[in-house]
Design a binder for these strands. Structure first.
Lengths: 189, 189
DNA sequence: ACCTGAACACCGTTCAAGT
DNA sequence: ACCTGAACACCGTTCAAGT
């Protein structure tokens, strides 16, 4: 509040003439940021790529707005630009042949996953530079590799694979898994 | 800090003799809470149920500890009880025949999803009672049902399905999707 | 209706001083 | 080593007073 007011060349109290409080302001910013995501024309052939692109775009935008990413959690889409984006998401899902139940429940999980990933990654970005992050992951790798094999056999055996992928690859993995799960659940009813 | 110190019958400053700060304290509490989750003996037949149960248990515990749930995001498992739990999770995944790549990347997504869901649901719990929540979801349902069908045809058509399931069913849906995705990705390499 | 400065009730953390 | 009270630098929000 204070920071935003300062950027506007005024005091924090002045904001309350336009906005009920911090929560409403975050919702407005969230709406604005979601509005920047390009919405595709649903295509039954490339629907997977379309969802991936929307997810990646939103994640990239939220990455530099940690508080907004957090506000994206626990919010039912109701603001105008978020609604348009939500409609685009379920439209693409339907084009992909997903069931109505998966559309209805999957929409929320889709958004939850994007916002949570963005928040998580923004924490690392805030805490350290790219170089420090590389060092940190090297330490984590060493730590896992040296875990006592009698108590942590599985963790120790996958240490190599755990520390390899960067944040983008992790995100894409999670999103791929989620979408593959949606497909599987649509087929099984 | 102040609240915890008060519960201990002392001042906030005294905590800094035992803990470096809020972050470390949250990590200790997170470790303690994760330690309460029952860890099963990996079973190739019921591995899905085993993962579901661990996930649900942890979610239930984190539900009443919002700040700790948030601290669970963006943290590489390294404290003792979290490590034991992580080993159990990947051991069950391996018993289920999931690939090493899915174990390594899936572990993080599994935890991310649980913590994010718990945080999200704890927001609703904090903001309103069960009765108010029912009213709120009824309003959301009405809102979606009345969306202009020309601009939001898909959202309007799934309004009924969107407002039905409660938070537990949503969580189970998301977890089922994630695990189904892990399976699909393990098969495809 | 819109803005303002000052104050209020909170944070987490630091620090000099104690035992 | 452990604890303490007071202070510091922050929050978001309220409120009486201005235009």
């Amino acid at each position: 509040m204070r920071g935003i007011a300062q950027q506007l060349g005024t005091g924090a109290a002045s904001l309350y003439a336009h906005v009920s409080g911090k929560e409403e302001l975050l919702e407005l910013v969230f709406d604005e940021l979601v509005g920047r995501v390009a919405l595709p024309e649903p295509d039954p052939l490339t629907w997977r790529e379309q969802l991936h692109r929307m997810a990646f775009d939103l994640r990239a935008i939220l990455l530099s707005h940690r508080d907004v990413a957090l506000a994206g959690l626990g919010r039912v889409p109701s603001s105008p630009k978020v609604l348009r984006a939500a409609e685009a998401v379920v439209a693409v899902m339907r084009a992909g042949g997903l069931s109505d139940r998966v559309l209805a429940l999957g929409l929320e999980q889709f958004l939850l996953f994007i916002a949570a990933s963005a928040f998580e990654d923004s924490l690392y970005d805030a805490r350290m530079t790219a170089d420090e992050l590389a060092v940190y992951f090297q330490e984590v790798h060493d730590f896992y590799e040296r875990l006592p094999a009698d108590r942590f056999p599985v963790l120790a055996s996958i240490a190599e694979t755990m520390s390899g992928p960067d944040d983008v690859e992790r995100f894409e993995f999670g999103m791929t898994a989620l979408l593959a799960g949606f497909e599987a659940m649509s087929r099984s009813g």
